[in-house]
Design a protein around this nucleic acid. Structure first.
Length: 603
DNA sequence: CCGCTGTAG
DNA sequence: GATTCTACAGCGG
């Protein structure tokens, strides 16, 4: 039995995927229309990007070709700006605000509401002369289109099924038709008004729209035609939905969401080669391609088997079912709402050799400087208030700073081989003084490096020598938006719980056999911590701000509101605490199981 | 919350 | 992964 189980499809959305053509080259062109030496610009960038494996080789290349222009670090900002501008442009068309960016040059849009609204406006008697309304309340803004035809390219045979699920597939067809015209309009607008051409895929979910867009690459669009789902009977008679036909032709690893690790595991299983060593893994090595069809038709294949192949400790729960869905073109994940602020900002650099403290210090300063600049460009916005002297205010405060390194594997005594390259990291509270807009940039950097980054570095690398880093990364996370007055706080206790768990369990361990520890002091201690200064940032940052006398906003009212929102929302105390039903002792929830064991010992 | 893994462009 | 620099989701503690 090759019974691939039917997937429940939910094709009630209209989702398109944008891919800007040659994004990096286009940015150059748009910045400098006069210098339309297109091939040159492209080649320069490509040379930098794919080129010359490492920084070292770049330096060598420099000797050979002194003319080479190296674009790094700072230059990324221009691409980021361009990307953001295009994203905002597209976002303005949506009603739902569902616009999600992937990297610099890809965007998904959920246009279901706009399209469905326009379906309701169609005149069935004159579909050729339809008008697409871009705004709900304005019948004049929009464009004319022919609703009997799909705009742009298509994949799939329009097909007449023996057992058509007519209603669903008709609705889908109509949605896709209108969606294709809207997509064309957006592509056109993007080109006319922003100077960027793009390639678009149109379908009913993220994965399919992304994949189908690849079919007609520059400056075009592709719609995945219905039928998306067909009846059991049709399957028996050898028919196939266009979704199946389409996605089956892809290599497993090409399916978004199935990356290197997962596709390797799947391949190994399908090729029935137990854990192929990476012996012959020389790059360029032709791997036998294992397509989605190969996997799907493999004996016994299904979500359960995939769970066995892919599951395990640390794996995502239900990964088998998820992978199975992906391979069947099923993807119910939502297009994310447009976000004002990123969830993290990080800066990193890689090194041939970085093994002394002075070098590290220097690099930390460089990285911290870039990071702070990024925070300024991404997290500051103009303050309308004319009373504001500085004229800017933070739209979000990251609460956490993280330092990561990638140690170069210590050279094995016996030979040459080196092992994995994983990153290690430490994170902690981001001091408040980094938000000062008055204090000297340099002085902020210095303080950040000395007071925060260096101590974290010491935690990662306690000994002053003996390491050699191939990469250093610093980043800020845990954004708290300032406008929206602390959403659902509460999450803070969880961190504390785990933080304290270690200590408490230690005590338990030590004393378990003899005298069960008294839970009360533990609870009290914790409580005093939290009312006091469990989170050192809470007090220090406020203090720093005050002592620096400079905050992002001049107005005392705003400052205090912000600080209250950000730094003084510590009112947790009792959350996460539980009371023992046996003796009435109060303690953190995590300690309760152990405490109950204590009672069981008593008997 | 913290540290780490996997995925993606 | 071959490489570089990001960014995000999810797991287990």
């Amino acid at each position: 039995m090759l019974g691939a189980k039917p997937q429940k499809r939910r094709d009630d959305r209209l989702i398109i995927h944008f891919d800007y053509d040659c994004f990096y080259a286009s940015v150059f062109e748009n910045e400098n229309p006069s210098l339309k030496s297109v091939p040159l610009a492209v080649q320069q960038y490509e040379a930098r990007r794919r080129g010359l494996h490492k920084l070292q080789l770049i330096n060598e290349a420099k000797k050979i070709v002194p003319d080479v222009v190296i674009v790094l670090g700072e230059e990324l900002g221009r691409f980021r700006d361009a990307s953001k501008a295009l994203y905002n442009f597209l976002a303005a068309f949506t009603w739902s605000g569902k616009v999600e960016r992937l990297g610099f040059d890809e965007v998904w849009m959920d246009l279901t509401d706009i399209v469905d609204f326009n379906i309701s406006l169609l005149n069935p008697h004159d579909l050729e002369h339809s008008f697409f309304q871009l705004q709900r309340d304005d019948p004049t803004t929009g464009f004319s289109f022919n609703a009997t035809k799909i705009a742009g390219q298509v994949f799939g045979t329009p097909i007449t099924s023996a057992n058509p699920n007519q209603d669903a597939e008709n609705n889908l067809m109509t949605r896709l038709t209108l969606g294709s015209h809207l997509a064309q309009h957006l592509r056109w607008a993007l080109e006319e008004q922003k100077g960027y051409t793009s390639t678009v895929g149109i379908s009913s979910n993220k994965i399919l729209s992304k994949l189908v867009g690849n079919l007609n690459k520059p400056k075009d669009q592709t719609t995945l035609l219905p039928p998306y789902a067909i009846s059991e009977r049709d399957v028996q008679s050898g028919m196939e939905s266009n979704v199946t036909t389409f996605i089956d032709s892809h290599d497993v690893g090409k399916v978004p969401g199935i990356g290197f690790k997962m596709s390797q595991r799947i391949r190994n299983h399908v090729l029935s080669r137990p854990a192929d060593f990476e012996t012959g893994l020389i790059y360029g090595g032709t791997k036998e391609s294992v397509t989605v069809r190969d996997v799907r038709l493999f004996a016994g294949m299904g979500p359960e088997l995939l769970e066995k192949i892919l599951g395990g400790p640390g794996a995502e729960r239900g990964i088998g079912g998820k992978a199975w869905n992906l391979m069947n073109g099923v993807d119910d994940t939502d297009v994310q709402q447009a976000k004002k602020v990123p969830t993290q900002i990080s800066i990193e650099d890689s090194y041939i050799r970085l093994d002394t403290m002075p070098q590290v210090l220097k690099e930390l300063r460089i990285l911290a400087t870039s990071l702070l600049k990024r925070m300024h460009t991404d997290l500051l916005e103009h303050d309308d208030d004319p009373d504001s002297v500085i004229g800017k205010r933070w739209i979000a405060h990251p609460k956490t700073v993280r330092l990561s390194t990638r140690p170069r594997p210590p050279l094995n005594a016996d030979g040459t081989r080196s092992r994995p390259f994983n990153r290690i990291s430490r994170s902690g509270p981001l001091p408040g003084f980094v938000f000062s807009l008055r204090e000297e940039f340099e002085s902020i950097i210095e303080k950040l490096v000395q007071e925060t980054l260096v101590p974290m570095f010491r935690k990662l690398h306690p000994s002053p020598r003996g390491w050699n880093l191939s990469l250093v990364n610093i980043g800020v996370t845990n954004m708290v938006e300032t406008a929206s007055e602390d959403g659902k706080g509460g999450g803070r206790d969880i961190g504390r719980m785990f933080k304290r768990q270690e200590e408490v369990l230690k005590e338990w361990k030590v004393e378990d056999k003899d005298i069960p520890p008294d839970p009360l002091p533990v609870a009290e201690e914790n409580e005093s911590h939290s009312t006091e200064q469990t989170d050192p940032s809470a007090g220090n940052e406020v203090l720093d701000s005050i002592m620096n006398g400079s905050e992002d906003a001049i107005q005392p009212t705003q400052t205090s509101v912000e600080e209250q929102g950000i730094w003084e929302d510590d009112e947790d105390a009792d959350e996460g605490q539980e009371k023992c039903s046996e003796c009435g002792a109060v303690m953190p929830a995590f300690a309760m199981p152990a405490h109950e064991r204590f009672h069981s010992f008593e008997e």
